[in-house]
Simulated assay, not measured.
Amino acid sequence: MKNHWIQHPLVLKGNEITLLPLEKEHLDQLFLAASNKEIWELTSVDYSVEEIFYPNFNKALEERNNGSVYPFVIVYNLTNQIIGTTRLLDIYPNDKKLEIGVTWIMKEFWGTAINLECKLVLLQHCFETLQANRVQFRAKDNNLRSRRAIEKIGGVFEGILRNDKIEPNGIPRNTSFYSILQEEWENVKVNIEAQIALKVNC
């Protein structure tokens, strides 16, 4: 592994989840976690399709070597089961900015503290270890579930890029962009920790 901004292997631990660097031996279990079609109803890509899943995640492993992407699997600590994935991408060390994205978890864990914990440990590493100035998020403009999740953790809406990407069906899509800045991090952190406490204590 070359000397990049994000040092490999990077393991991030929360109370309920651990983020482990994605490796080839994780792919089959992660593909199994992706099998529920409901996960992909609002997204551009259906990772329950084998011909889509394996090329994408093998490419992410290749891109980790050049420092542009850092993919994780999300492990549920109670069962040691892989329940989803997330990654750091669009990594620009010179500008001290990067993006959190390609995040999904099994439907059984929707509405729990899992996604919040993932974002907490990732943002904590970005702002407190990497000393990033900016962390970006994006979502398909009509994916209201993802957009609400970003807004709940404190992502500030910056606007919509029209016809930003071409969908697999050939139709252009709009993308909503959000960010959190270094000076906003402490308030965001308190907000996320409070939301986690509420969900855990429900």
Rank of each mutant, 00 (worst) to 15 (best):
I82E: 11
I82W: 08
I83M: 13
I83T: 06
I83P: 02
G84I: 03
G84R: 13
G84P: 07
T85S: 11
T86K: 04
L88T: 05
L88S: 04
D90M: 15
D90N: 15
I91H: 12
Y92N: 15
Y92A: 08
Y92D: 14
Y92T: 11
P93N: 06
N94H: 13
N94L: 15
D95L: 10
D95Y: 12
K96N: 14
K96F: 13
K97R: 15
L98D: 00
L98Y: 01
L98E: 00
E99I: 03
E99L: 04
I100N: 01
I100E: 00
G101C: 12
G101I: 08
G101W: 07
G101E: 01
G101R: 05
G101A: 05
V102F: 07
V102N: 15
V102P: 02
T103Y: 03
T103L: 09
I105P: 00
I105A: 05
M106C: 11
M106E: 15
K107C: 14
E108K: 12
E108I: 04
F109C: 14
F109T: 00
F109P: 05
F109V: 11
W110V: 09
G111E: 08
T112M: 08
T112A: 13
I114G: 02
L116Q: 10
E117Y: 05
E117S: 06
C118A: 13
K119D: 05
K119N: 10
L120G: 00
L120K: 08
V121N: 03
V121I: 14
V121P: 09
L122F: 03
Q124M: 00
C126A: 14
E128L: 08
T129D: 10
Q131G: 06
Q131S: 14
A132R: 02
N133M: 11
R134G: 01
V135C: 09
Q136E: 14
Q136Y: 01
Q136C: 00
A139I: 02
A139H: 13
A139K: 05
D141V: 08
N142K: 09
N142A: 05
N142F: 13
N142C: 07
N142D: 15
N143K: 10
N143L: 04
L144C: 08
R145G: 15
R145E: 12
R145P: 10
R145D: 10
S146K: 11
R148S: 13
R148I: 10
A149W: 09
A149H: 06
A149N: 06
I150Q: 12
E151P: 05
E151L: 15
I153Q: 03
V156P: 00
V156T: 10
V156M: 03
V156L: 04
F157Q: 02
G159L: 07
I160Q: 11
I160Y: 06
L161R: 05
L161Q: 07
N163W: 09
